[in-house]
Design a binder for these strands. Structure first.
Lengths: 220, 220
DNA sequence: CGCAGTTGTATACGACGTATACAACGCTGA
DNA sequence: TCAGCGTTGTATACGTCGTATACAACTGCG
């Protein structure tokens, strides 16, 4: 190589190591903070060095999404309801760890891990739950939409929504008292969250159970 | 002004006109295709001219999201179920027209139209449906998550999914016959879609009704 | 040893958001 | 009528981005 690197090589460059580093970088800085240059810098290399291993940035994102799909675990048995429930919980957990993946999981071209994920979910609804194909498609859509949508909102909201509610409540209504009159039900919710807190896990599963109940009724 | 413009001014520059043009541009080219320069070009102006009216690009996006929220109509009466149903249908219709808005609607700072949207939804669940505050929050989350998630998936999928299924079916399994064995339930779904078609409207409302049934049961 | 393939670097291009400085206009008051 | 000022658009420039291209250093094989 021509010149000495300023920072020593920190890890071997390979598709695998690059993808893992990219996931970590996106976890920390968000998807907008993920640039080829910053990613390469972490290896003590130049941006162009990455292109020997990943094609282009889209390919990089595909690989990253793949890794996230790989983290999702679907139990083999326990009945359709337990399986589908765990599947959704696991998916949301992955999206909570990797918020940047929300909006990418569905948009990228399907990988093996992706296809497997969908296939096992559908298999469960068809065989374990015994739903006819039309109902299985509907149920599948319903569940995945809920999971994605919940993750999407969770990503946008503060981690500790109750603390945020407490902090903002008075600042907002103090700045413009007419807000309390214009949007009383919104204020009521903010107050409720400030008082009782908000547990994303619990709320997610609560909605999930409503949906599972609905699917249960489809079976009869 | 110093030099003559190459293209004549096509419309007056104002926050209002810029936001509308931006929405149209994003509708056509996607949110990635929306740049200050291209947007300004549509007015026969330079990118910097926009900054007299919109602060920065984030402010621009805020305003665009605002316009979309303004398109959502919530009926005043008809019972909680009809109101909430129409609310969801209208929201999804807006997101279908403006796919770029998915993932932005929740992330931007709340505007007036945004606050009103949430307030009226919560008001309906509290007064019309008569849900206690905790159930109202849960029901509200459930519905919005579903709508956002459905819109998110719809954005990623082809408009005519049945045609796509027909076109891709044989190309895929022809290229790699083992796919059919690895993912039989996925193939089954593709075949079903190719045969029977897929109506996003109908499927959306089908899932929506399952959720509304679930909320109905919460009331008792 | 020589030589080919692999891997990283150097450099450059065009597009992006936007800071800064300036020029052309419309309005006002004398 | 005209000076002055605030408003609006332009010109230019900076740093960042993804990535094309050309080249240099290393590896392993004959």
């Amino acid at each position: 190589m021509t010149g000495r690197r300023q920072g020593p090589r920190k890890a071997v460059l390979s598709r695998e190591s690059i993808l893992r580093a990219a996931v970590r970088l996106a976890d920390d800085d968000g998807v907008d903070g993920l640039s080829m240059r910053k990613l390469a810098e972490g290896f003590g290399a130049t941006a162009m060095a990455l292109y020997r291993h990943v094609g282009n940035k889209d390919d990089l994102l595909d690989g990253m999404v793949d890794l996230v799909f790989g983290e999702i675990e679907i139990p083999r048995d326990g009945g359709w309801r337990a399986i589908m429930r765990q599947r959704a919980v696991s998916m949301r957990a992955a999206l909570r760890c990797h918020p940047w993946a929300v909006g990418l999981m569905e948009a990228r071209q399907p990988s093996m891990a992706n296809l497997r994920y969908h296939n096992t979910g559908l298999a469960c609804l068809r065989t374990e739950a015994g739903l006819p194909i039309g109902d299985a498609i509907a149920a599948y859509n319903l569940m995945d939409s809920y999971v994605y949508g919940f993750a999407l909102q969770e990503k946008a909201l503060p981690r500790d929504i109750a603390a945020e509610a407490r902090a903002r409540r008075d600042a907002l209504t103090g700045a413009d008292p007419s807000l309390a009159e214009q949007f009383p039900y919104l204020i009521e919710v903010v107050d409720e969250l400030a008082a009782s807190g908000y547990d994303y896990n619990e709320q997610f599963e609560r909605g999930l159970d409503v949906i599972l109940d609905g699917i249960e009724r489809l079976r009869q």
